[in-house]
């Protein structure tokens, strides 16, 4: 595929930060693509580099201590090396972002309406203040905020968490972005509100045809809304495939572990969960070879070399993973009782 064929293409992206302890390789070779109208979920735990990847696309991780390699192209436009002014236009214009904590993501001292207007005006120099306000009201109405015309004059603290997240979505939509990045958009919300916001995102994706990057640790949310999944661990992509591929034919032991660790409300899962032993590695001095090796009960001598991210299943060439085990071995090893999981045969000492 030629570059530019995808809406967004990230290839071999590396982000590292100079810190007092040493160089933190937060993102260490991440590649994925996003198409129009598609939801790609980046899944991983804290420290996996999923948020850093997302924020780097908008240049929000730029700082004197940060260094970048690789590329990320939005319709052929390079984002990693873009100038501040180019980035400014892209931010909120072509790529918009929704953050995790709606409680703190809005400026407490400005009215809701004027915070949306601020973004509209930043990207459209022709629009008048009152036109922009009308657009803000329409947007708030569209994302399901009741009495939008009155509530533009409210301050963030007068809104509940769910309503604030709707405001964030309205803001993100204000300039009809091509890509929407949602970083844990429902994590801070109650379940019934979470369901409302996920519904909102679904509608939005249908209506706008924007590509959505969903950053999350919640596999339930992923199962609910994503088309494709990128699983990240300690800065690297360990597996990538469609929703069903990842859930029903996972290839990487870390993915098995994640799937095995989750509790389900619709199933009786008595007894011990097949959890992943140990803790994620330090990103300053990660283990050589596969980063998951120290926690992986199936590791063997080859794992000290870094496996390539490539397809191992001929029937699904888009399903790639970073593991040295053969597809046959994987099918046997991932089975723990009647579910997929990471079989740990010894008690966990953290």
């Amino acid at each position: 595929m030629s570059p530019g064929a995808h809406l967004l293409e990230v290839s071999n992206l590396k982000v590292s930060f100079q810190t007092e302890e040493g160089v933190v390789r937060a993102v260490d070779g991440v590649s994925f693509a996003l198409e129009q109208g598609e939801v790609v979920a980046i899944v991983g735990e804290s420290g996996s580099g999923k948020s850093v990847t997302a924020m780097t696309l908008l240049g929000l991780t730029r700082s004197p201590n940060a260094s970048f390699e690789g590329s990320a192209q939005l319709e052929g436009k390079e984002l990693i090396t873009a100038s501040e002014e180019q980035l400014r236009e892209i931010r909120g214009g072509e790529i918009a972002m929704i953050f995790q904590d709606p409680m703190s993501s809005l400026d407490p001292v400005y009215r809701i309406g004027s915070q949306i207007v601020e973004q509209i005006v930043a990207h459209d120099f022709q629009v008048s203040k009152s036109e922009a306000m009308e657009r803000a009201i329409a947007l708030m109405d569209r994302v399901g905020i009741p009495r939008a015309r009155e509530r533009v004059r409210s301050y963030p603290h007068e809104f509940s968490g769910g309503m604030r997240q709707r405001v964030m979505i309205a803001m993100a939509l204000s300039c009809s972005p091509k890509v929407l990045i949602a970083d844990e958009p429902t994590t801070a919300l109650d379940v019934t509100i979470q369901a409302q916001i996920l519904d909102e995102l679904r509608t939005l994706r249908k209506e706008t045809d924007a590509g959505i990057i969903l950053v999350t640790h919640d596999l339930g949310v992923v199962a609910d809304i994503a088309d494709r999944i990128v699983v990240m661990y300690a800065g690297r992509v360990v597996e990538q495939g469609t929703l069903d591929e990842i859930f029903y034919n996972p290839q990487h032991p870390y993915t098995w572990g994640l799937l095995g660790s989750i509790t389900r409300v619709d199933r009786d899962t008595t007894g011990l969960l097949p959890s992943i032993p140990g803790t994620p590695p330090s990103l300053v001095s990660p283990p050589a070879g596969c980063h998951f090796r120290p926690r992986c009960p199936h590791a063997f001598d080859r794992c000290t070399d870094v496996p390539a991210l490539e397809a191992h299943l001929p029937e699904t060439p888009q399903h790639v993973d970073r593991c040295w085990l053969s597809a046959m071995q994987k099918r046997d090893l991932r089975q723990v009782g009647d579910r997929i999981g990471l079989a740990a045969d010894e008690p966990v000492i953290a």
Binding site: R88, G93, D107, Q119
Partner: peptide, 8 residues
């Protein structure tokens, strides 16, 4: 961060 992401 939101303000930056808005494109200000």
């Amino acid at each position: 961060r939101t303000a930056r992401a808005k494109g200000l």
